[in-house]
Simulated assay, not measured.
Amino acid sequence: MLRIHFTSDDLARITLATGADPLWEVLLSSYRLRRKEGAVTFGPWKRDVVRRAGPEARVLSALAPLRGYAVDFLTPAGTGSSLSAGAEALRRTPRTRLRNDLAELARRHPGRPFPRWTRGLAEGAPEAVALVADAVTGYFATMLDPFWSRVEAQVDHDRSRRVRALTERGWEGVLATLHPSASWSYPVLELAFPADHDIHLDGRGLVLQPSFFCWGAPTTLLDTGLPPVLIYPVERDLNWLAPTRSTSQQALSALLGTTRARVLEAVAVSACTTTQLAQRIRTPLQTASHQAAVLREAGLITSRRHRNSVIHTATSLGRSLLNGRCGLTS
């Protein structure tokens, strides 16, 4: 569980990021490249770019293992939506930060071999720091830049929704709806997280950073002394890349029916309430509720009540069906 502790000053110092952060998207997309989660949403992108993954991706994977801690210095604060500013901030990373983060990485991944260049990086060697900065910019150019306008469009859409929520209900309304797991009771915001982690803002405020490649639970930095930031997943258009439906999608629609297939795909993106589900697939609330009930009876999704809402989650069977791994027999 992630707990973010606010003071009254912090509510006045919340900032909603102006757009997608290239460095956070580089880091989080490197996970999507290596993990199986999110196949429905990211599958077309992954199939397009995986053959182009080069040494830059290997540099990132050394600093961001498949599971667990990734070094905080890969995503410096205050660079906004500028890749060049982010890369320059990386090059200026203090030696103490490099050494501490790499020591933390080794401590949290005991026995894991690290490339030889990480020793120089821990000592602040300019050529090692340049290697990392160049890897980030090279990875972005190859893996993200061809799709960046679509990524930005998805993030901008989410930001517009948050601005409307802010106008209608204030920051408390925004915080309470950031994620299906969000629970806001002043002065603490609680969110799903892989481990217990507390951040005391102490008047520093909080940057809310929407992310396209963030999957599942929100994320943040480990070092609570760094400028506080909360990265949360946006609600994505499932057809963000492909103008036409794939053969597997067509087969799924034939099996379940078009609307139910869309409902299952939408729930698989991330857990959501019935209202959020209706918004994702652009259907009336009553229709979304009915189709969710049918999928629940079939064992493809589960539903649980949380306060005044019902939250839907895809089951392993539902995900297997979406990923084409379900061996159904007559």
Rank of each mutant, 00 (worst) to 15 (best):
R3W: 08
H5C: 06
S8E: 10
R13M: 04
I14K: 04
L23D: 00
W24M: 10
E25K: 08
L27E: 00
R34V: 04
R34A: 08
G38I: 03
A39T: 11
G43N: 02
P44M: 05
P44S: 07
W45R: 13
A53W: 04
A62M: 11
G80P: 06
A87F: 11
A89E: 08
T93D: 12
T93L: 13
N100P: 00
R108F: 06
R112Q: 15
R112F: 08
P113A: 06
P115H: 06
E123S: 07
A128H: 09
A130M: 04
V132R: 05
G138F: 06
A141Q: 12
D145Y: 10
F147W: 11
R150W: 14
E152Y: 01
R159H: 01
R164W: 11
G170C: 12
A176Y: 11
S183H: 07
W184C: 01
P187G: 10
I199H: 00
H200L: 03
H200R: 02
V207R: 03
Q209I: 05
Q209P: 01
P210R: 11
P210I: 11
P218G: 07
T220F: 02
P227L: 07
P227C: 03
V229G: 00
P233Y: 13
E235H: 15
E235R: 15
L238Y: 12
Q250D: 06
L255V: 02
L264F: 10
V269H: 11
C272M: 10
Q276V: 12
Q279S: 09
R282E: 07
T283A: 09
A292W: 07
L295P: 00
T302E: 15
H312M: 05
T313Y: 07
S316L: 11
G318P: 02
N323F: 03
